[in-house]
Design a protein around this nucleic acid. Sequence first.
DNA 1: GGACGGCCTGGGTT
DNA 2: AAACCCAGGCCGT
Length: 376
Amino acid sequence: MLKFHQIKVNKDELSLTNVLQAGQAFRWVFNEKENHYTTTMKVTESNKYFIVVLSQPADDLIEFTSPDLSLDPEHLRSHLERYFRLDVSLNNLLLNEWIPKDHRFKTISAHGVRILAQEPWETLISFICSSNNNIARITKMCHSLCTNYGEEVGVFDGQKFFSFPSSDVIAERATETALRDLGFGYRAKYIIETAKKVSKVRADGNYENDTALFRKLQSSFSYIEMREHLMGYTGVGPKVADCVCLMGLGMDDVVPVDVHVSRIAKRDYQIIANNKNISTLKKLYADLPITRKKINLELDHIRLELYNKWGLYAGWAQGVLFSKEVGKVSGATSSGEIKKRAIVQVDIDIKEETATRTTFDRVSNKHRKNIKREQI
DNA sequence: GGACGGCCTGGGTT
DNA sequence: AAACCCAGGCCGT
């Protein structure tokens, strides 16, 4: 019998359903009978993956464990606290950041919807798969990559669990044809080309793993440069790149703008780019030294306006609103079924937390002027 | 330089 | 039943 350990956290701060099954992470398997979630993840500094099991048995409690007895529970606890970003209080953001800036949040509960700190490489591949696709199939694809190219980590609930394959493993062992046969469709080519390029960049820089590479890039790049770099991979446009920045690199103020966010922005905030907005953005990007893929300036205007409106945790605010708008589909269950879900109403209470940094603070000086100009 | 098809697939709807 | 639509975009022309 597994021994579960506890994390005291309220459901309005963290709802496992709303965070793990709402199109942000695609590799958590829900066991309906036992009411717990299972995945594999890196927990330690090494590249080893562990099976991790979570449940939310009460409104003020998360329970966690791993069947791997070599894993120190306290180490897993601190890892999960980082993964769920428990240093950030949703209720504080709501009360002190979003409600004062946006009256729309007065009547909204965050429902425990928060942004995860996921592995950048896995986030990149997951969201390459997300283009013109639905959550059920994205989930299926992510699992398919693991079962076909990952390493078996262990068995739980009578089901085998695998690691997420690194860029070099995919580059060496997978082919476009093989991925097409596995049902990836036109994304097969994107994944192969991206894996080859990432593993090459990695090898050239002698990085130990994919995470190390992306963290290093992040440390020397501004947000704009990081997005630029990500958009250099096939199948990665501004939306996918922004998802990686937000959920894989912890850039909390980045708002990935897709069709839904675009609709919300126009319908609820009347954000519509005029000619001046567009020409300003055009100049902004023309001045940047990096040649870029074309981006939709109308959507980019929405991104900036929502950042201006919501502030340092704009990406989180988007998550809350987005979940309210379209979060109705769940991911994998043990039986392989995909089910509809309902968002649970929760109450609001207060905690201490202070927002500290912005992605735009990290823009290098030669770009700052341009960015600032656009922030006005 | 920007607008516009076309794209794999699977589940749902007509 | 067959046809059509749609899903948290991106690529090529």
